[in-house]
Design a protein around this nucleic acid. Structure first.
Lengths: 117, 117
DNA sequence: TCGACATTCAATCAAATGGTTGACAAATGT
DNA sequence: ACATTTGTCAACCATTTGATTGAATGTCGA
């Protein structure tokens, strides 16, 4: 029942509309990663990946914190809920399942990645 | 379990990343509409809305058929399934609910709109 | 057949996107 | 102090997006 603005949904869906960014999110779903670790699999420059991460941050899908000279990125699933609500409402069903979804996501804690806390 | 191409997901999420297009889909979720009916609520030109619908068609979210001199637009929820699967997988849970979702969507028939069949 | 209606197409434009490179900054190691 | 590592920023470029307007297409009704 979160009051979701259309502008937020724009940011979220736009962030998801790129396979590189979805790939980053899939990696982050497994746990925290540094920007460098996230950039490694891709052919493009580090700066390009950094910009993709910035888009994800702007959509609040990724939280980033400095850890020494590393930037630790963490998946934030909360906006996914908004996206899922939108899809669910579009299909106009499933609203009973939605509360479970919301509960799960608000209590979700990502697994720890290969990095040390 | 359908293995979907990243390119398709690009199209689907991109189509969803615009509030006008989401508005059009919400209207269509209620039943068929003509291009003109869909365009009416918006300030922008008919041509602009026509192009938005084209984007939705390209993502296979809308089917369009000619009915006399009218173009009837119909919501196709199947791609929503792919988007939902992606979100579900990102949150890495929920996979048991996914089959219900898939079943629902593949058998889904939209309600009839204010137009006559 | 003529004209009104419904929609698309074509040309155009400003703004946003996604990529590059090089300069910069912050933390660490020697 | 100085160089290295890690990442961001700024400038630049090509392409795409989202909008407009006006012409073109197709269909119906008189």
């Amino acid at each position: 029942m979160v009051k979701r603005s259309e502008a937020e949904l724009d940011l979220i869906f736009h962030a998801l509309a790129d396979s590189t960014r979805r790939g980053i999110l899939r990696t982050l779903a497994d746990g925290k990663r540094t920007v460098g670790e996230l950039a490694n699999p891709y052919e493009m420059s580090l700066a390009a990946v950094s910009k993709h991460i910035k888009v994800l941050r702007h959509a609040d899908l990724v939280k980033q914190t400095r850890d020494g000279r590393l930037q630790q990125c963490e998946f934030n699933p909360a906006p996914i809920k908004q996206a899922a609500e939108t899809l669910a409402h579009l299909a106009s069903f499933w609203d009973d399942r939605l509360s479970e979804l919301a509960d799960f996501l608000t209590t979700y804690t990502p697994p720890t990645g290969p990095d040390k806390e």
